[in-house]
């Protein structure tokens, strides 16, 4: 005779519902992943590739929507999972664009994967850039290095809703010209009404005829109206620190500058604590923070 009856979590009604990743406080398959197919691979540089990934199940694909700044956990069955920020447009419901640098084990194998390969996607996770709030303002989109990958989502959003924003400036810097991402799209961006694209490299090669120097140099040439401007800054901590401090000198309030933080993540749901700083979880409270919050996050920069 059993003294108490077993409880089967899988019989809970929540567990039987179609898969949806929300923060809602109900039971769910937290580690179930959407199966997705790599439909296209675009070689950007020696180290980075852009993957087009389509969720296979139509119902799940329809359910998947995201906001600029959010990320997914990309699963390579048997080898692991990595957090990748979404580089594509939120209005693109057909496939998800992920720009991936060859850095660790999972990404190295992914770089060998071919079109048609089936991977897994969990998400989207995290918060987003406040695109609604920014409407009616001038927008500064500033990226350093791989920072172009997360910046491309708000960039798409702005170009697709061009009339909602005033002047748009894209500033992009890398160390060397061959590290520049999405070079084939610059012409398109430049031709969009009133978008000012500026590119700078630190170490030019013989083919480079553009600007040379640190990204902050580009800021000095801009006509900035501090109280009518929002800035999104993506890049390594040392870069966004310099850029944000420079923007502050122009008088832009810190709550009008947004950065996206990178951390180690193993779950995306505020549980594993790998991205935790004190009480802040980069995966659920971020990855997007205004600069004031970043300054208050100990050891964030």
């Amino acid at each position: 005779m059993r003294l108490f009856t077993p409880y089967d979590v899988t019989k809970e009604s929540d567990m039987l519902m179609p898969l949806e990743f929300t923060r809602a406080n109900r039971l769910m398959h937290v580690d179930k992943t959407y199966k997705a197919e790599i439909t296209n691979i675009i070689r950007l540089t020696e180290m980075e590739k852009l993957f087009h990934i389509r969720i296979i199940n139509e119902e799940e694909r329809a359910r998947f929507s995201f906001l600029p700044g959010q990320f997914v956990m990309l699963e390579l069955p048997g080898y692991g999972e990595v957090p990748i920020s979404i580089s594509g447009s939120p209005s693109n419901r057909g496939y998800i664009e992920l720009c991936i640098r060859k850095a660790g084990i999972v990404t190295s194998i992914l770089h060998k994967a071919r079109r048609g390969a089936k991977v897994g996607i969990r998400g989207p996770f995290g918060n987003s850039f406040p695109m609604e709030k920014m409407k009616g303002n001038n927008i500064l989109l500033i990226a350093g290095g791989l920072g172009m990958a997360p910046l491309r989502a708000p960039l798409f959003y702005v170009t697709e809703n061009r009339s909602e924003y005033q002047d748009v400036h894209i500033l992009y810097g890398t160390r060397t010209p061959d590290q520049l991402l999405f070079t084939y799209q610059y012409d398109e961006w430049k031709r969009i009404d009133d978008i000012n694209l500026q590119i700078i490299v630190e170490k030019p090669d013989i083919t480079w005829s553009g600007k040379v120097g640190m990204i902050t140099k580009l800021l000095d040439e801009l006509p900035i109206k501090p109280l009518e401007t929002y800035a999104i800054v993506c890049g390594p901590p040392v870069m966004f620190k310099f850029v944000c401090n420079r923007l502050r000198q122009f008088g832009i309030p810190m709550h009008r500058m947004f950065v996206s933080l990178e951390r180690r993540m193993h779950c995306g749901m505020g549980k594993c604590c790998r991205c935790n700083i004190g009480s802040t979880f980069i995966c659920v409270d971020g990855p997007v923070f205004d600069y004031w919050s970043v300054l208050n996050l100990k050891e964030a920069i």
């Binding site: 409880y7 089967d8 979590v9 899988t10 567990m15 923060r23 809602a24 406080n25 109900r26 039971l27 769910m28 398959h29 937290v30 749901m269 505020g270 549980k271 659920v284």
Partner: peptide, 9 residues
């Protein structure tokens, strides 16, 4: 947020 069925079970 994101209650964990492994633990709850």
């Amino acid at each position: 947020f994101y209650p964990n069925p492994y633990y709850i079970s």
